[in-house]
Amino acid sequence: KRPMNAFMVWSKIERRKIMEQSPDMHNAEISKRLGKRWKMLKDSEKIPFIREAERLRLKHMADYPDYK
């Protein structure tokens, strides 16, 4: 399994928030909203998620050195 990228790290957190607020919303609609919101974020707002994704990538490389 591949490590999460910055969007996936961010969307995992945000998806929970949306599901708590709107439990009946369909997954496809949540995904569309998340995509739009991610694109609207400033680069500076994405930095913590980019850093976390990089940390996960490095950990994945250490844990699975033969992964292609």
Rank of each mutant, 00 (worst) to 15 (best):
L41Y: 02
K39H: 05
L34H: 01
R15C: 06
E14N: 07
F49S: 04
R2M: 14
H60C: 12
A6R: 02
R57V: 06
F49K: 01
R57C: 09
E52V: 06
A6P: 05
R51S: 05
E29L: 01
K1M: 06
R33A: 15
N5P: 04
Y64C: 11
I50N: 07
R16K: 07
P48W: 04
K46T: 03
D66P: 08
R16G: 11
R55Y: 06
I13H: 10
K39R: 10
R51N: 10
L58M: 10
S22W: 12
A6Y: 01
K17R: 08
P3N: 15
A6L: 03
M61C: 14
E20T: 09
K59Y: 09
R16F: 07
A53T: 03
K12W: 01
M19P: 02
M4Q: 08
W10L: 01
M19R: 08
M19V: 12
K42I: 05
Y67C: 12
I18S: 02
S22E: 10
R57Q: 11
H26F: 05
R2K: 12
M40K: 15
L56V: 05
A6H: 04
L41A: 03
M40W: 05
L41N: 01
F49D: 03
K17L: 06
S11D: 00
M61I: 13
P48K: 03
L56C: 04
W38L: 00
D43V: 06
E54N: 08
R55C: 06
S11G: 07
I13G: 09
K1T: 13
L56W: 01
E52M: 06
A53M: 07
S44G: 09
F49P: 03
K17M: 04
K59Q: 12
E52D: 05
D66T: 03
L41V: 05
I50L: 10
E14D: 01
R2Q: 13
Y67H: 13
N5H: 03
P23L: 07
S31W: 07
K36G: 09
V9S: 01
R55M: 05
M4P: 11
R51F: 06
P3D: 15
W38S: 04
Q21I: 10
S31R: 07
F7C: 04
S11H: 00
I50V: 11
P23S: 05
K39E: 11
N5R: 01
P23K: 00
E54D: 07
A28H: 09
K42T: 14
H60G: 14
I18L: 09
N5L: 03
H60E: 15
V9L: 14
R37D: 08
K46C: 01
K59D: 12
A28K: 08
K17A: 05
R57D: 10
R57H: 10
R2T: 15
E29A: 05
K68N: 14
R16C: 07
H60M: 10
I47Q: 13
L34M: 04
R51P: 05
A53I: 02
F7D: 01
L56E: 09
H26D: 15
S22Y: 14
R51L: 10
S22L: 05
K32N: 09
L41W: 01
R57N: 15
K36R: 12
G35P: 08
P23D: 02
S31I: 11
K42Y: 05
K1R: 06
P3T: 11
N27K: 09
M40Q: 15
K59F: 10
P23T: 04
L34E: 00
R57G: 10
F49M: 07
I18K: 01
L56N: 07
D43E: 10
M19F: 07
H60W: 04
L34A: 00
G35I: 14
W10F: 08
E45Y: 06
K42V: 06
M8S: 13
E29Q: 05
K59V: 13
M4C: 01
D66V: 04
K46A: 01
E52K: 04
K39T: 07
M61S: 13
A28V: 08
L58V: 11
L34V: 05
E29G: 01
F7I: 01
P3S: 14
P3F: 07
N27F: 10
P65A: 11
A28F: 05
K1N: 13
L41T: 02
R33S: 12
G35A: 14
M19I: 11
M61N: 14
I18A: 05
E14H: 04
E54Y: 07
P48Y: 05
R15A: 09
V9F: 03
R33L: 15
L56I: 09
I50S: 05
I47T: 12
R57L: 07
S31E: 15
A28Q: 08
I13Y: 11
P48L: 04
K17W: 00
K17N: 06
H26W: 06
E45C: 04
A53R: 02
L58P: 05
P65V: 12
W38M: 02
N27Q: 15
M8C: 10
K32V: 11
F49Y: 13
I30M: 02
D43N: 09
L41R: 02
A28I: 09
L34Y: 01
N27S: 13
M61D: 13
K36V: 13
K1E: 15
E20V: 06
M8T: 14
K36Y: 13
S11Q: 14
S44T: 09
E54R: 02
E20C: 03
M8E: 15
P3L: 10
Q21L: 07
R55A: 09
R55S: 10
F7W: 12
K17S: 05
A28T: 10
L34T: 02
I30S: 03
E14V: 00
E14C: 04
R15H: 05
F7S: 00
E45L: 09
R15T: 11
R16Q: 15
